[in-house]
Design a protein around this nucleic acid. Sequence first.
DNA 1: TGGCTACTGCCAGAATCTGACAGCAGGCTG
DNA 2: CAGCCTGCTGTCAGATTCTGGCAGTAGCCA
Lengths: 229, 229
Amino acid sequence: MSRSERLLDLIQCLRRHRRPVSGQALADELGISIRTLYRDIATLQGQGAPIEGEAGLGYVLKPGFMLPPLMFSDEEIEAIVLGSRWVAKQPDQRLSAAATNALAKIAAVLPDDLREDLDASTLLVGPPAKAVEGIDLGLVRQAIRNERKLGFLYRDAGGAASERVVWPFALGFFDKVRVVVAWCEMRQDFRHFRADRIAQLEATDMRYPRRRQALLKEWRATLDKPRGS
Amino acid sequence: MSRSERLLDLIQCLRRHRRPVSGQALADELGISIRTLYRDIATLQGQGAPIEGEAGLGYVLKPGFMLPPLMFSDEEIEAIVLGSRWVAKQPDQRLSAAATNALAKIAAVLPDDLREDLDASTLLVGPPAKAVEGIDLGLVRQAIRNERKLGFLYRDAGGAASERVVWPFALGFFDKVRVVVAWCEMRQDFRHFRADRIAQLEATDMRYPRRRQALLKEWRATLDKPRGS
DNA sequence: TGGCTACTGCCAGAATCTGACAGCAGGCTG
DNA sequence: CAGCCTGCTGTCAGATTCTGGCAGTAGCCA
């Protein structure tokens, strides 16, 4: 196995073990000596991989992902940049910042001529949707990723407010509003919650008892065969 | 210089020379022997780089770009995927297809757990804007990239139709419409053209006499200090 | 036909990588 | 505190890979 392949393997290994792993264990898994492992880790860190090692514990890969070398056509790059610009204009601050960062990283490695094209912004994105949420959508996305319950106050279309605990599993971006899709404990059914009507959002660390993907699949099925509203 | 760095350099060299370059010239530029160059080219082709070599001519890099290894955080990947999904839903067919392809390429190299997250689509994008253009926006983007004139029939807000020849330099994506930003030869001024009011679009191979970036800069200046409409 | 080029196999020397050992520093446990 | 585990660095001989030169085949063009 060539060295460059092994480096990618190393990252995969670190991704699998979420907890700290000792260098010896990694070396065994890859079939190399501990000394070589240290060298490989140093190489990866030199390339920007966020690997952290602590004496007495082991190595952890901070959440993130290394994209291997990848070919994109001109139009594919344009599509990615345009899309990221759109995301950057969304009111979700964390996601917007992430899009901006990603764009900066891509721009940093583009050859000069392409970067000029992109800096010149021949593809423009319109103004952001106007509805502004008072809540941090980043918390919602985090809850979705980790399958945690969310609590909040919801003001429905009629203006009536109610306290909800829900199992969020998807987030929809529409023209003017963002919508949290979740299983509602109160209604015992799937519900959509417009983000601009959510208040006092509270992230909990209670894991909900279903897998996110299963919920998503069920919810999709209900969309195909709509039942009584 | 390590081998992997040199491989990236090779791509940059090929990008610079748009015309076919002989292997010997490339080898000189990189300071390596011709034999090693052949090996490097073979390696790059093995990694998917679209390099073509023809006997008697030289090497050409088909338009496109190789992204070197790059670290993205979870949120950055989410932002890119969400943005690309949005682009994929746009009515511009070529761009939409490019976004879909880019997503497929990214998904192909993601570790399993992350790919599942993305396949499961916890981030959804609303339905595409409804206004459908009868024209191929791909032609417009191509004209912008190559700085070529465009001819078409335009029906303005009042319903009056006119024949235009314009120098397009930007394309705006708004909530419901796409807008071509260009210098209009008839009006001798900057004009915006809603794509859904354009008919009989004709791409020409006439280069317009200004640089795209200069036009863009001027146009931006007019936005800051609006003159008489 | 001749000239230019891409491309492949081969081989010896150069460069790099690897594994093993030794040693230092920091956290944890008893 | 001592003992243990771990990360991390330096060194060095042997294994591995890379490199450059040479020879030969094949395709394109004039």
